[in-house]
Computed example of a mutant assay.
Amino acid sequence: MASTLLAQRVAHDVDLIARAGLPIDEFLDEAMGSLARAVPFVSACVPTVDPATMLVTGVRKFGGLTGLDHRDHEWALIEYGTSEPDSFAAVARSAVPATAVHLATGGHTERSARLTDFMVPEFGFTDELRAAFRSGRETWGGMALFRDEAANPFTPEEVELVAELSSAMALGLRTGLLAQLAYAPPVAPVGPAVLIVNADNEFVQLSAGAEQRLADLNGRPTLADPMNIISALVGAARSWAAGQTDLPPRCRVRSASGMWLVLHATPLSARDGKAGDVVVTIDEARPPEIVPLVVAAFGLTARERDVTQLVLQGVDTKEIASTIHVSTYTVQDHLKSVFDKVGVRSRRELIARVYFDQYVPRMGGELGASGWFAGS
């Protein structure tokens, strides 16, 4: 167990790292290295999630899990296709955004199906500490730390420290999302791609363009196998069909090319009554789908988000004031705060910053009936 002084130093270090504006991979490398000084672990994984649906958008791994991706699809199906009291979504909703299996079960870890049926036989992990990384209303990711028989279970003090890091880790993830640059030139839109997954979790049909979309997802360096995103959607679709969740099975992901994609999953029912097949659709995200995510990542207040949304629609200051029932001076104050947080000096720069490089080249173009830029 770490000393109080060491725990305080780690919390301070993680907070500083989170404010450095690093890309996600660099942030996590430094933050997890610091955390390991106070909360040792043999392996760890850090999923990022879409804050609107809590569906995984990527996973980074550390320690003994590094490079082990062959069982990711099973993890995703368990996480999103079953109902456990300490799922990441459940931890995100709890008053304390961290928990450990050994502590939560009073030492009866066999009560955790995930640990007993998957983690122990597959990896030899005997305890897991989970946390959700929350910033205000949104959850941007989570963390699972693992120990094996060679180490003692996680302590209440360690869980408390990890819980205290929740907001700092969320800050690092959401600002890292904004700092992330495209790894390759954007690819031309290919239209929606469709994949059908059967009840045995096998891909049985792929539409034209599906392999290109999957390759674009698979090309992101440092990430674990992005197929866990597809598996998470499949599991979530089945939970949604069973009435176990009311969150739609969809997420927004930035691919290797830098293009924002939106992924949907829909459960299918056959005429003979059999169920289990799921259709997954991957398409380029339209501006209305991605803007709320990006705006939330800047950490704007609710009123600042309202002002920003109106600026993105081309509304002038006087009309913004009338719409949200404040004075023009108050609108200017909100705009100044927004500019400071986003790091821009004008409305034009704000629009370009929010839309990223995916949309900037097409700014000024007309939107078609589909909500995408006409002529794309």
Rank of each mutant, 00 (worst) to 15 (best):
R37C: 04
A76I: 06
E149K: 13
D72V: 09
G33F: 03
K61G: 00
V159N: 01
A104V: 08
I78R: 15
T330V: 11
R19C: 05
R134H: 04
L6N: 06
D25C: 10
K318T: 06
V338C: 00
M54W: 00
P192I: 06
V294L: 10
I290Q: 08
M259E: 05
S327Y: 00
A210I: 10
A95N: 10
M363W: 05
G141D: 00
D277T: 14
G191S: 05
A369M: 08
T126S: 07
A98W: 00
D127M: 14
G21D: 03
L217C: 03
M119W: 09
D127C: 13
I351F: 01
A113C: 06
A20G: 01
K341M: 00
D86L: 15
W260Q: 05
G176Q: 08
D25S: 07
S269D: 02
S207Q: 13
P47I: 03
T308R: 13
G63N: 03
R286N: 00
V101E: 03
D246T: 15
A237D: 04
P249A: 10
E138V: 10
F356G: 13
P221V: 04
F125V: 14
D272Y: 09
D148Q: 14
N201G: 00
R130F: 05
H264Y: 14
L233Q: 00
T155L: 07
R174T: 02
P221C: 03
R137P: 07
I290D: 01
D216Y: 06
V190S: 10
T109C: 05
R286V: 01
V342Q: 02
V262W: 04
A98T: 07
R353D: 00
A241I: 12
T330N: 02
S83G: 09
L310R: 13
T317L: 07
D72Y: 03
